[in-house]
Design a protein around this nucleic acid. Structure first.
Lengths: 189, 189
DNA sequence: GTCCGCATGTAAGAAGTTACATGATTCT
DNA sequence: AGAATCATGTAACTTCTTACATGCGGAC
């Protein structure tokens, strides 16, 4: 569903475009929002055209097809925006790694968290290169702001967690972590 | 890959378990970290057993199979934890909705953001019901902390964005938003 | 003429969702 | 006896990834 919404959104926001154009937008403006490759985009455009959400407005050279959003397409998009409440993804590799760090020795866990922190910092720099969200009030600005806040929050989490590990882990070995684990892995035996 | 890691992690952290037990854990402890249903879990366990990462330790009543992690399984898990750096999911419905809100009239956009804010607040309450991460130092504690911070950050983003919309949107209609949009939808025509 | 970027597609497979199907045990 | 829960599986479908495949048009 969401791929479809992303395509309708781009066609609505930036006007008629080809599959190729749209693919480029997924690689740039939408890169940190919704990823999709051309092998997914072309078939989806064909389906949407068959369902009347978009139409082929013109055909250019090299078989280039220019799609335009139809009123039905705008309706569908508007309905999704107004009627659907997205939840955070129920699958996060980051949360999974966080969940499992107590399996590691404290020294190893700190190393993993430092690496994660560095990766969040790298992402933050990458997003900041895209511009200042407070100055960019149109498409992408709000999502960019959200991404930047997310990266910052994750960095803080990583360093606070390292601090917590260092505080409770100094001068001890595997034993303490293992004892911890037994008690906290929820109420089962 | 990550489903496999989650299963190995659970078997490593909580000891031998059946597919049924593991399915229950995905519904409880792992619910906000990694979701998977039994129809995905059973075949994956069979594959992992065939590859020697886990073994059937015992068979109980009702055909219940108790799986145990093998040294090879522990290796695989340890390698993933130490050697793999997860990135944020490249597809976020929340970010997509944020990206597209400028397509709406300011009043509609505010309504959408208020609804999102309420949903983040609900998630925060749900996570807080699971316990205080500062007191829960074992499995789940770090991931829970991350989830709580994430929910709080998203709430702040939503209310700041509403404030931004209200500031720039008071006393205007669709026209201003549309002009904004044209300029900001990245460098194309 | 050949290389590069434009432009579109298909195919095979992994991952995830929803629904179907079945049988054993325990509780009332 | 009937209902609920335990316990395992398969099938069909959607979504996403990676790789294969083809042809046009402009630049050098």
């Amino acid at each position: 569903m969401s791929l479809r919404i992303a395509l309708l959104g781009l066609l609505s926001a930036s006007g008629p475009a080809s599959g190729y154009d749209l693919t480029k937008k997924f690689e740039t403006s939408l890169a940190h929002v919704w990823q999709a490759g051309h092998s997914q985009i072309y078939p989806e455009l064909a389906k949407m055209a068959a369902e009347g959400l978009i139409t082929v407005e013109a055909e250019g050279s090299r078989g280039r097809k220019i799609y335009t959003i139809t009123p039905e397409g705008r309706d569908e998009l508007h309905r999704w925006l107004m009627g659907y409440t997205p939840s955070p993804s129920p699958r996060s590799e980051i949360a999974l790694q966080a969940y499992l760090t107590p399996l590691l020795e404290p020294r190893e866990a700190v190393a993993v968290l430092e690496r994660m922190g560095a990766s969040f910092a790298a992402r933050l720099r990458e997003l900041q290169k895209l511009g200042d969200p407070s100055k960019k009030s149109g498409y992408g600005g709000y999502a960019l702001d959200l991404g930047i806040r997310q990266a910052r929050m994750a960095m803080e989490w990583a360093s606070d967690t390292i601090a917590h590990l260092s505080a409770s882990g100094t001068g001890t070995d595997r034993a303490e972590g293992a004892a911890d684990a037994e008690g906290a892995a929820d109420s089962e035996g």
